[in-house]
Design a protein around this nucleic acid. Sequence first.
DNA 1: CGGCGTTCACAAGGTTCA
DNA 2: TGAACCTTGTGAACGCCG
Lengths: 334, 334
Amino acid sequence: MANNHVHLENNQRISTKRSLSTQSSTELDRKKSGSTSKRHKSPLMCVVCDADAHGYNFDAITCESCKAFFRRNALRPVQKLKCRRNDGHCDVKFNIKKRCKKCRLEKCIETGMRKEWILTDKEREEKRAKIEENRCLKQLQDNQQSNKNHLKIDDLLSIDFSSLSNNQSYLNEFNWIRIRLIQDYFTEAVKLNEITGISSYPSIQSIKTTLELFHMPIHITSMRLISYIKQLNEFQQLKQEDQVYLIKLNLLTLCFFHLIFIYDPRTDLYHEPNTKDPYFSGKDWNKTLNKQFHIEMKQLRNDIIDIFQLDDIIIKLFLLIFCFFKSNLIKSII
Amino acid sequence: MANNHVHLENNQRISTKRSLSTQSSTELDRKKSGSTSKRHKSPLMCVVCDADAHGYNFDAITCESCKAFFRRNALRPVQKLKCRRNDGHCDVKFNIKKRCKKCRLEKCIETGMRKEWILTDKEREEKRAKIEENRCLKQLQDNQQSNKNHLKIDDLLSIDFSSLSNNQSYLNEFNWIRIRLIQDYFTEAVKLNEITGISSYPSIQSIKTTLELFHMPIHITSMRLISYIKQLNEFQQLKQEDQVYLIKLNLLTLCFFHLIFIYDPRTDLYHEPNTKDPYFSGKDWNKTLNKQFHIEMKQLRNDIIDIFQLDDIIIKLFLLIFCFFKSNLIKSII
DNA sequence: CGGCGTTCACAAGGTTCA
DNA sequence: TGAACCTTGTGAACGCCG
Ligand SMILES: [Zn+2]
Ligand SMILES: [Zn+2]
Ligand SMILES: [Zn+2]
Ligand SMILES: [Zn+2]
């Protein structure tokens, strides 16, 4: 380990530098053209200490160490530095150890390094803040991207939800605002399609005729769902015929899903919450459609209700998303 | 002197420089190959006493003891020392006990140690002063840091608060005025965002629908917190987009913190004090978000409530400060 | 890529204490 | 006296913005 720490700078290196520095007086121009021949080497030399240089630093061609030295010392009061030999003529070449600070700094200034180009504390702070900001933004984008890609069911099922525990949310404030807006869409849709004309219905009275059955609940539910979906901006942006196509394709299935979600198995009643809708009993299905229908509906309910956990937000979003499916693929899966 | 340009450097430097220096076979290669044989030991040897050396001391490769010896004795007049054997040829190797001072010092000087590099009394004093100054600055910064940001629970818990007992306050009169102003900001924010339209609600009635749930409490809390923060001068001075960014990033977390603080575990109710807000029961979480959420919220409450000790000033200041965090770092810590 | 700042490992002084 | 430690300064390598 430590044995590798020794480095003897040999004369070879020095001599190569010397030969470079003595070659010509128009170093810069020549070096640019000459760099094609030995491209692996830096063609520049530090104007302060003769070491290899990469390019300009504070408006002078310097090596990395002189650059760092200048940044560290140039802004400090020069008086505090003292010449080692007290004559101000110390050698500050790169191969000298313990270079006199004062003389090195003076040489820096002499050769044209500008202390004005050193960033002030304030500028440095600003730059740092900008970097931090970019870092955050990048992280945010990465998070959002990984959210978007995670729609595969397999991935969803394998998510470790414990990671959500520490107040962490995949949704930001704007996401939540949007969700609230969408929730309002549904409330609005229900309001827009109140049951008129039969409001005098006793609340818990079974439906007598087939016509009433189909007005209540399928019809009213359809109307509400249509109103709900049509408020969504993304839906409005579709062509008219596409809107019709999707509604026609999916509405009936949507209705049945919605009915599942508003069904209460304890009372065997369907009822839209917060409305004056009459209560619709499960037994009433028997009167018009065959019993098998209601049984299968309850079966499907059992299958999916755990997934949704009666989370109203999830349910309403699901209905919305479902309406955009344009093939029967999803139905064959279910 | 000119022949031994020895540097101690790390592996990376050597490997990068090797292309420059491998061409010739000088001391470097000799030392390198020699060092590979006993790599477990320090490859350097004290030029004075042959003990293991770590690097240069006063421009010669020496051991720690010779370094200390040289510093202590080099500046003293040589005449005062007397050779033990009076012939100036004592052995000063490391395995000799009671080495002759005079001969050792002479060997030091012979082998190239420079007494000029020993700091003079004045330089030593200056250096000491600088260290002391830095120490003070550092301590000051640490204090400020621990006052402002210290969110690490361990540190907080280990603070000895008894030092605060003697009527001592870190805050002056103006600090307290500012704090009262900020308290007023929150009161104002609550006033500005009263719950309208449902003020006739019976006070203790559980929330029935998801919509109400999200209007009450998240929504109203969000609005109040935004109003609160926006009154702060320091926040107003941010660029519009930065304000939006911070709000977007932190508001939801802030909401949850605030809800924790207004939660009363005895009654299982959330309620903003001094308002006519309806009381929101902890059980209501179950209806929309899963139960786990409320449980974890209570867990977090248990973890942090002791720190805040229900001190309203601390809590409100914490919310304010928290809003300025621009990375997710703090959340990952919590 | 050029040219800033930052980071990190280490050189090389001094200081402490057994 | 000397091992262990603490300090600042240095410079190579790297990160980041324009
Ligand atoms: Zn240089
Ligand atoms: Zn000088
Ligand atoms: Zn020695
Ligand atoms: Zn002697």
